[in-house]
Amino acid sequence: MDTNAPDAALPPTIRAFLAAHAARQVDAAARAFSSSPTSPPVVVDDGHTYRGTEEVRHFLRDAGGQYTYTTELVGAERVDDTRWVAVNRIEGDFPGKVAELRFRFTLVDDRIAELVIAP
C-alpha cells in the first residue's frame, strides 16, 4: 500500500469521487458512477447493497449523515487494470471515534461500477 502521496496511485475518477464524497457533494460524487442500464452501479456498505443510480444516490445522500467527521486518505493501491483500493481514516463523533475504511473500487469505462466499503 502506497502511503507516500496515496492519491497519486488513484485514477482521476476515484480521486474526484473521494473529494466529493468527503465534502458531501452528492451530485459530484454521483457523476463518478456508471450510468449504464445494462451494468448499473453497485455500492456495498455496512451490510447494505445499493443497486442502480437512484439507490447509489440515496447512499451518497445519507451515508454517515447523522455524524460529523473528517476523512483523510492514508493509503491507496492499484490491484489490476480495473480495481483500486483507497484507505481512508475517518475521525468524528460516531461510536469508536476513529476508523480506517477500505474503499474497493471497480472501474468500467472510467466510471465506478462497484464500490465496496469495509473495515
Rank of each mutant, 00 (worst) to 15 (best):
residue 3 T to C: 01
residue 4 N to A: 14
residue 6 P to A: 09
residue 8 A to D: 13
residue 10 L to R: 10
residue 11 P to Q: 06
residue 13 T to H: 01
residue 13 T to Y: 05
residue 13 T to R: 04
residue 14 I to N: 01
residue 15 R to I: 06
residue 16 A to V: 09
residue 16 A to S: 14
residue 17 F to I: 04
residue 18 L to N: 11
residue 18 L to V: 06
residue 19 A to P: 09
residue 20 A to L: 14
residue 21 H to G: 05
residue 21 H to L: 11
residue 23 A to T: 04
residue 24 R to C: 04
residue 25 Q to M: 14
residue 28 A to I: 05
residue 31 R to D: 10
residue 32 A to E: 07
residue 34 S to F: 03
residue 34 S to L: 13
residue 34 S to N: 11
residue 36 S to R: 10
residue 37 P to E: 02
residue 37 P to C: 05
residue 38 T to G: 12
residue 39 S to D: 12
residue 40 P to T: 04
residue 40 P to D: 07
residue 42 V to Y: 08
residue 43 V to R: 01
residue 44 V to P: 12
residue 45 D to L: 11
residue 45 D to A: 15
residue 45 D to V: 12
residue 46 D to V: 07
residue 47 G to I: 10
residue 48 H to S: 15
residue 50 Y to V: 01
residue 50 Y to F: 15
residue 51 R to S: 15
residue 51 R to D: 12
residue 51 R to G: 11
residue 52 G to C: 13
residue 52 G to T: 09
residue 52 G to F: 08
residue 53 T to H: 11
residue 54 E to S: 13
residue 54 E to G: 06
residue 55 E to L: 14
residue 56 V to T: 13
residue 57 R to W: 10
residue 57 R to F: 08
residue 58 H to F: 15
residue 58 H to C: 12
residue 58 H to M: 14
residue 60 L to M: 04
residue 60 L to R: 00
residue 62 D to T: 14
residue 63 A to Q: 12
residue 64 G to F: 09
residue 65 G to R: 14
residue 66 Q to S: 14
residue 68 T to Q: 15
residue 69 Y to A: 08
residue 71 T to A: 11
residue 72 E to G: 11
residue 74 V to I: 15
residue 76 A to C: 07
residue 77 E to D: 10
residue 78 R to T: 01
residue 79 V to L: 14
residue 79 V to S: 06
residue 80 D to K: 08
residue 81 D to S: 11
residue 82 T to K: 02
residue 82 T to R: 06
residue 87 V to T: 14
residue 87 V to I: 03
residue 89 R to Y: 09
residue 89 R to G: 08
residue 89 R to H: 11
residue 90 I to G: 02
residue 90 I to Y: 01
residue 91 E to P: 00
residue 92 G to V: 06
residue 94 F to M: 03
residue 94 F to W: 04
residue 95 P to M: 08
residue 95 P to V: 02
residue 95 P to K: 06
residue 96 G to H: 04
residue 96 G to P: 06
residue 96 G to K: 03
residue 97 K to C: 00
residue 97 K to T: 12
residue 98 V to C: 03
residue 99 A to I: 07
residue 99 A to N: 00
residue 102 R to M: 02
residue 104 R to S: 00
residue 104 R to A: 05
residue 106 T to P: 03
residue 107 L to N: 04
residue 108 V to G: 04
residue 109 D to L: 00
residue 109 D to G: 09
residue 109 D to T: 09
residue 110 D to N: 04
residue 111 R to G: 05
residue 112 I to H: 03
residue 112 I to N: 02
residue 113 A to N: 01
residue 115 L to S: 07
residue 115 L to T: 03
residue 117 I to Q: 01
residue 118 A to Y: 07
residue 119 P to S: 10
